[in-house]
């Protein structure tokens, strides 16, 4: 059985997995990080989005062994202690969730968007979130949340300079 080692939320972890073990399974079952959700398991819904080496990916469509040596961040790794990440804060403020099932993936995907495009338009946000499906909100408040987080984070970046 292959063993894998990777960094998850800043901590080095290892485990024995099968070749076919998905990264989403490894995160949820080996590491007990159940914030990463499995919705469709067919690469479409985006509930399982995590960051691997700084980019968002669908963890149900990556083998755990493919993440050997990678730097992985899940929804649990986003907040700074008790302080929520601006994206999490914005989803709360804007009521960007209802049932909350898609939220971890939405948040992780949206954070990646702001990494590549700090000031996205409504259209760019909607395009980017094409791979994240929400059946409750109608997306409206999600777009609003991403805009608010973008503004907050641009403010923080400017203040840091």
């Amino acid at each position: 059985m292959p063993s894998v080692t990777m960094t998850v939320n800043g901590k080095q972890v290892s485990g024995d997995v099968e070749g076919r073990t998905l990264l989403s399974t490894f995160i949820r079952e080996n590491l007990d990080l159940t914030g990463t959700h499995i919705g469709c398991d067919t690469s479409q819904c985006g509930a399982c989005v995590v960051h691997v080496d700084g980019r968002s990916i669908k963890s149900c469509t990556l083998l755990a062994v493919q993440a050997e040596g990678a730097d992985v961040v899940t929804i649990e790794g986003l907040a700074d202690g008790e302080e929520l990440h601006p994206m999490q804060e914005a989803f709360r403020d804007c009521h960007g969730l209802q049932c909350g099932f898609c939220t971890p993936g939405m948040v992780m995907s949206a954070v990646d968007l702001l990494n590549v495009n700090p000031d996205p338009s409504d259209h760019e946000i909607r395009e980017w979130l094409e791979g994240n499906i929400c059946r409750c909100t109608g997306y409206h408040n999600i777009v609003k949340a991403v805009k608010q987080a973008a503004q907050t984070m641009r403010g923080q970046a400017a203040a840091a300079e």
């Binding site: 690469s43 985006g46 968002s56 669908k58 791979g131 994240n132």
Partner: peptide
């Protein structure tokens, strides 16, 4: 092509 996560992989 596809969506953002597909394009990243």
């Amino acid at each position: 092509i596809g969506d953002a996560q597909v394009r990243n992989r």
